[in-house]
């Protein structure tokens, strides 16, 4: 069989539509995953031992199991317990929980990296613990966390392809659909891979722009 550019050309409109859905579910999971990660990371600082154990359990379980299994448990397993979610919401939940677990560790490391002297200086001028956290500590923690967080978000974009397995229509699903029909696997999956590269490049470009404009204003 020869290489068919026509197959790619014909498939592209559908692949683009799939890519749009990949972008949509990835961005949503990123946003929710960051918010959830920040909340749980802050929550892990409370004195309550019970809460800290629960958080540790959550982080360990979701970081030590394959994302695919998590997706399957949500989509195939939960209905047995009475909770039936659509492919989209199953995929979104699994992606969010997975990414937030990594974010918790990233943010905790970021918080720990802020020198103790910063807490002391902020509190010694009369700032409340909340004000010190919001204006002095968290901004610095975010700057430290940003590279690792960015990596995690790129992983999320690539991992979103796994939700194709439960029938959510996004880029990977569309690629499968086309190639199962025209058998042009190399062309279609090759083109799909190129699309993923472009999506990742767009994401990393966005992240470094954010880093440069918003975060690295320290005169250096």
């Amino acid at each position: 069989m020869t290489f068919s550019w026509a197959a790619i050309w014909q498939g592209l409109p559908y692949l683009f539509q799939g890519a749009a859905l990949t972008i949509f579910i990835s961005l949503t999971a990123m946003l929710l995953g960051v918010i959830l990660g920040v909340l749980i990371a802050l929550l892990s600082e409370v004195p309550s031992r019970g809460i800290r154990i629960l958080i540790r359990a959550y982080v360990e379980i979701f970081r030590n199991t394959p994302l695919l299994i998590q997706i399957f448990i949500v989509y195939f397993g939960l209905p047995q317990l009475g909770l039936k979610l659509s492919p989209f919401f199953s995929g979104l939940s699994a992606l969010t929980l997975y990414t937030a677990a990594y974010n918790v560790e990233i943010f905790r490391a970021g918080l720990e990296a802020v020198p103790k002297g910063q807490h002391e200086a902020a509190r010694s001028t009369g700032l409340t613990p909340l004000q010190a956290a919001v204006f002095v500590i968290i901004p610095q923690a975010l700057r430290v966390s940003f590279p690792a967080l960015g990596n995690n978000l790129v992983s999320l974009l690539k991992n979103s392809s796994l939700v194709s397995t439960i029938g959510m229509v996004e880029l990977m699903f569309v690629a499968n659909d086309i190639s199962f029909n025209n058998f042009r696997s190399f062309e279609i999956y090759g083109a799909t891979a190129v699309l993923y590269v472009l999506l990742v490049l767009a994401l990393t470009w966005t992240l470094s722009t954010i880093e440069r404009r918003l975060l690295l204003k320290s005169g250096r």
């Binding site: 020198p115 002297g117 910063q118 002391e120 002095v136």
Partner: peptide, 9 residues
């Protein structure tokens, strides 16, 4: 403080 502890950001 000895280490100044200015807010770097």
């Amino acid at each position: 403080f000895q280490q100044f502890n200015l807010y770097p950001h």
